[in-house]
Design a protein around this nucleic acid. Structure first.
Lengths: 177, 177
DNA sequence: TTCTTGTCACCTAGGTGTTAATAT
DNA sequence: ATATTAACACCTAGGTGACAAGAA
């Protein structure tokens, strides 16, 4: 079982139509896609993966591999297109004929409230204001309210991943180590 | 085969008698222990480890586990004692009776120029000056020379690890993930 | 005395939306 | 018109030695 962290914040963005800035150099998502996983076998190995499905129609589909060790592969998102993030937990089957059990060894989780539109500049001013109000790194643009925003992630939660996205221009160099 | 990075800088510190500040909260080493490894099998798994041996006499000995994935375990160093860092490369033997080959499956590397004395405050003013001159984070204390120090690590080198050290007071909480 | 601790100003490093310039 | 890019001020986050106060 998997539980989305900061669900209230995701809901608030989703109500307005979440937008995520994409840049050539890569840009973090905010809110961060962050989950708690329950019911894992402490002795087993797992792979944690994430990908983004185009929602409406569109043709592009790019996988992103993320694990707790933060090994991830770049993805490319098209600006002005809408995407649905997905989260996959893959059990690393120690059996030699593990391919036979591939279908039963993974589970996919979709949180609809994490849908977003990739943009190069915000289209909805209310989204901009909500980002400024809730993202600590945008504090410099706040007018009022020096208070009472739920700060960052809750202690005790496991940050599984933070994702980068880019516009369609290919990058030549891998991310700095 | 393993090659120490920033050897010239290590040599310069070693000539004066390298000192490393230790604090309760943990303090990074500077220079950073950083190596290039040659001759690895790209298809094999390895474990990279580090520990610190007391040099002169002294009784304390604490292991530190470091890997390229930066999983590490705290260590405790005694202030005013001298230590010799060591670096171990362990081949993860896929054979079922791998314990039998344990002795031939690892290799230890010692760079004497990385010896240092753990201190809570610098004892040698020339060490302080060399730290200020060569560590970018201490730039605020530089008088002159806005120039020409070999910046940080060379691009292309693999940073295997950076180590933390602490004074002997036990810490209650593990490092933030 | 000598060593240790906590606080601080001053940095590095990098994540924000803004804005003006450019591309489409 | 509309979408994208690059530079920027303003933040968060955290790594420095200095320094004063405390401990041994």
């Amino acid at each position: 079982n998997v539980q989305l962290e900061m669900k209230a914040l995701w809901d608030e963005f989703n109500q307005l139509g979440t937008e995520m800035i994409v840049t050539k150099a890569g840009r973090r998502m905010f809110p961060t896609f962050q989950v708690k996983i329950f019911g894992m076998d402490p002795m087993a190995d797992y792979m944690l993966l994430m990908d983004f499905l185009p929602v409406d129609d569109k043709r592009y589909r790019y996988p992103i591999n993320l694990s707790a060790k933060e090994v991830y592969i770049y993805i490319i998102l098209n600006s002005m297109h809408r995407y649905q993030p997905r989260f996959h937990v893959v059990y690393v089957d120690p059996r030699k004929d593990s391919e036979k059990y591939a279908e039963e060894n993974y589970k996919t989780f979709v949180f609809e409230e994490t849908r977003f539109t990739a943009v190069t500049a915000y289209q909805n001013h209310r989204i901009t204001q909500l980002k400024i109000a809730s993202n600590p790194f945008a504090k410099g643009f706040r007018d009022c309210d020096p208070e009472d925003w739920p700060r960052n992630h809750r202690p005790g939660s496991l940050q599984i991943m933070s994702a980068f996205a880019r516009t369609r221009n290919p990058m030549s160099s891998p991310p700095q180590q």
